[in-house]
Design a protein around this nucleic acid. Structure first.
Length: 706
RNA sequence: GGCGCGGUAGCUCAGCUGGUUAGAGCGCAUGAUUCAUAAUCAUGAGGUCGGCGGUUCAAGCCCGCCUCGCGCUACCA
């Protein structure tokens, strides 16, 4: 029996939009993996959906004066549509507010409850709002933080100092519903006996075995995942409360639990199950084949690192407590993506949300794949990484346009020119010509199966690079000039076209918008499920992907460059983003205006510097450089040529006669082919403006500054 | 405070179980080339692998201490 793959991505919480960090964390990697599996013709289902319960949603609804239902409807639709627009190809995007999910969660609870030993009942004291006659969830209580004195700390956390709190710790607690001081009252809650699962969980995570029976290869899990889990287990597992006094959520299915709902963290992962049920129902399949198929099922959870403990400890414990369910074979959690060096922050406006990207880049060609590529190239697979617009531009221009796009284009153009787009007949041993490509493809497959998508996409680019190098080595254009019937040229073009055809398949998981366009210019239909298997076989056997006589389509530009001399429109889109960030930074400047003073040095360190007075006698722009000016500085005893990166701040004409201070003993350095013999001193303020360190005219050139 | 993960070329990052001269891309320098989206190709410069100490015939990879970043988690109740 062949394996079935059950893939999940963390359910987005339906009270807000998702930013690029979320996309890079749990959705894009999963999409790549799932598309890869489908290309291999595997039996795979990928589920996700909106997580729509919890106090945060009711509070937000109250604040905005709308119903919780309105909130979740809005964000469910937004997130679902945005994912779809970015090519995130879930098999099912469900939601936890559906009756099916409620029923599934209640059944799950009841099963555990009926076992008798999975839950504890505890009566605890909790704050109660007497005016509104209800218990207050942690988030409904504010008060003064005992650690930092912040007066608006929530019952679960102080947003000022970040410390985790319990409502009982707050000084002067008040209800956010009535504003009154709440009173303590007894209430009953149910606790999941996580502690009873500690032993097998440790073995499962550390060894990858369950009661000695192999389940997965523990060393294939990411280090930070295993590390954090073992750290948690070492701290000892405690029974965990799974119910809340709240009116928004899934009612606890017990007669004595009126007014109580399942804690959102309990029902959310069950959402994976209900989503699969719904999908299977609509497909006429049996959901249990995927969740209860034992060793035939590969369950993979894609999440961000904030969710590790939940998906590696709590949810597996729930699944095993329930019985029959499979456990995740791997949880390839990603770390966090930062944005231009800082964390995404909605309140600061720092970062960009997925839907916002699509809107603001609406005029950017191939914007979906441009974003996907920038993110894959920089996935936080093993540590936090950083999204920068500079990288976005570089990846797009240097790799997508110059390497990949240009390769495809030159192959197509040459083949059209020489053979009217029809593949010539050749005698060529592809397994020999494409030996290195074959190795790269094998490596590519291994990397994907190790969840190393960053490596995998770079291997694809190496194949494209191989193509460029191959073309350059053969230089068919040189041969063709004298011998248009050359066998060598035919072979070269035939082989090159095979590489393009291969790229179109390998790229599909990463660039699902571009891959079909390449197929189109090759005269092929979009790639079909399972086609990768056949492709890999052909590559291994040295058989062509496109045969002699195949007719290619007309070449088109896949990626028009951002830095394009004739068309600045794409650069303008990027520049608007840069400007936005600059404005945020400037608005915040006054608070963090000064740079920290550097490490202490000794007098001798200072004495090494030879600073001299000088006068700029001539200045001119450096050709082909936006920022550089070539300056001639009179030091009295000699005139130095100094290249300085100030062209964006000063015109050459304004500089002649300017008194400056230079570093006279700095090692010379060539910039844009001109040797710069020193460095001009300037100060830079918080807004990036510059000013010269100067001296009074007439005092003298070449004098030592100390 | 404890624990986990990370700190590798100017920048962004690879380096699987310790093994000869530490890798890639970008940037920079030099040269070649012109089919192509001013694209491509070759060559080169550049690293005390966060710091100190230790184990080993041999350490970026192992151990200890320190330091910085990210995260988890406590305590002083």
């Amino acid at each position: 029996m062949s394996k079935r793959y059950l893939i999940t991505s963390a359910l987005p919480y339906a009270n807000g939009a998702l930013h690029l960090g979320h996309l890079a964390g749990a959705y894009l990697p999963a999409d790549i993996y799932v598309r890869y599996l489908r290309l291999l013709g595997k039996d795979v289902v990928w589920v996700c959906g909106s997580d729509e319960h919890g106090a945060a949603i009711t509070i937000r609804a109250k604040k905005e004066g709308v119903s919780p239902q309105a909130i979740i409807d809005k964000y469910h639709a937004l997130n679902k549509n945005t994912f779809a627009a970015l090519g995130i190809s879930f098999d099912y995007y469900h939601r936890t507010s559906t009756p099916l999910h409620h029923q599934t969660s209640q059944d799950f609870f009841t099963t555990l409850y009926n076992q008798g030993d999975q839950f504890d009942e505890r009566v605890i004291e909790q704050y109660y709002d007497e005016e509104y006659d209800q218990f207050l969830a942690d988030r409904y209580i504010v008060g003064t933080c005992p650690k930092c004195g912040h007066e608006e700390a929530y019952g679960d956390q102080c947003e000022n100092c970040g410390s985790a709190l319990s409502p009982l710790e707050l000084i002067n607690p008040r209800s956010t519903i009535s504003g009154n001081s709440p009173v303590l009252r007894e209430t009953k809650h149910w606790y999941f006996r996580l502690d009873k699962h500690e032993a097998w969980l440790r073995e499962w995570i550390a060894e990858g075995t369950i009661a000695g029976v192999p389940h997965h290869q523990a060393e294939q899990w990411k280090k930070h995942v295993v590390g954090q889990c073992l750290s948690w287990l070492d701290g000892g597992l405690q029974p965990r409360s799974i119910t809340r006094d709240l009116d928004w959520g899934i009612p606890v299915p017990l007669p004595e639990a009126k007014g109580k709902v399942l804690y959102v963290w309990f029902d959310a992962p069950i959402g994976y199950i209900s989503a699969t049920k719904q999908w299977a129902q609509e497909k006429g399949l049996n959901w249990e084949d995927y969740w209860k198929g034992g060793d035939d099922v590969e369950l993979i959870h894609f999440i961000g690192k904030d969710n590790i403990v939940f998906h590696c400890i709590v949810f597996p414990a729930m699944l095993r407590a329930h019985g029959d369910f499979v456990l995740p074979r791997n949880v390839p959690a990603n770390q966090f993506l930062n944005f231009e060096g800082q964390k995404f922050s909605k309140s600061r406006g720092w970062g960009i949300e997925q839907h916002q990207y699509l809107e603001e880049f609406s005029d950017f060609p191939n914007k979906e794949d441009a974003l996907r590529y920038a993110l894959v190239r920089n996935l936080p697979e093993n540590r936090d990484s950083d999204f920068r617009w500079d990288d976005f531009v570089d990846f797009y221009d240097k790799e997508l346009a110059d390497n990949l796009g240009n390769f495809v284009n030159r192959v197509l153009v040459l083949t059209q020119k020489y053979y009217d787009g029809v593949l010539p007949e050749v005698q060529v041993d592809l397994s020999e010509e494409l030996l290195s490509v074959r190795r790269l493809v094998e490596e590519w497959q291994l990397e994907i199966e190790r969840f190393s998508f960053k490596n995998a996409i770079q291997l694809v680019m190496e194949i494209s690079s191989f193509g460029n190098t191959y073309l350059q080595d053969k230089s068919p254009w040189a041969i063709w000039k004298t011998d248009p019937d050359s066998e060598e040229v035919k072979e070269c073009m035939f082989v090159s076209v095979q590489v393009v055809a291969l790229l179109a398949v390998l790229l599909e998981p990463f660039l699902p918008f571009t891959a079909p366009r390449i197929r189109e210019v090759l005269g092929l239909a979009p790639v079909a499920p399972g086609e990768l298997s056949a492709t890999l076989d052909k590559v291994a056997a040295g058989e062509p992907l496109l045969a002699t006589g195949h007719r290619l389509g007309e070449p088109t530009v896949l990626f028009p460059k951002i830095n394009d001399r004739k068309d600045s429109s794409r650069l303008e889109i990027i520049d608007r983003q840069r400007l936005k960030l600059q404005e945020i930074m400037e608005a915040e400047q006054p608070i963090t205006a000064h740079e920290p003073v550097k490490e202490e040095i000794q007098y001798d360190d200072f004495a090494k510097l030879d600073l001299r007075t000088g006068t700029i006698v001539a200045a001119e722009r450096v050709p082909k450089a936006d920022k550089l000016l070539k300056l001639s500085v009179d030091l009295g005893f000699e005139t130095r040529t100094i290249v300085s990166g100030i062209a964006e701040h000063y015109t050459p004409e304004s500089l002649a006669g300017k008194q400056v201070v230079i570093v006279a003993n700095l090692a010379p350095r060539k910039l844009r082919g001109i040797e710069s013999q020193g460095m001009i001193l300037l100060a830079e303020n918080g807004e990036g403006k510059l000013d010269f360190v100067s001296w009074t005219a007439g005092f003298g050139n070449g004098l030592v500054v100390k």
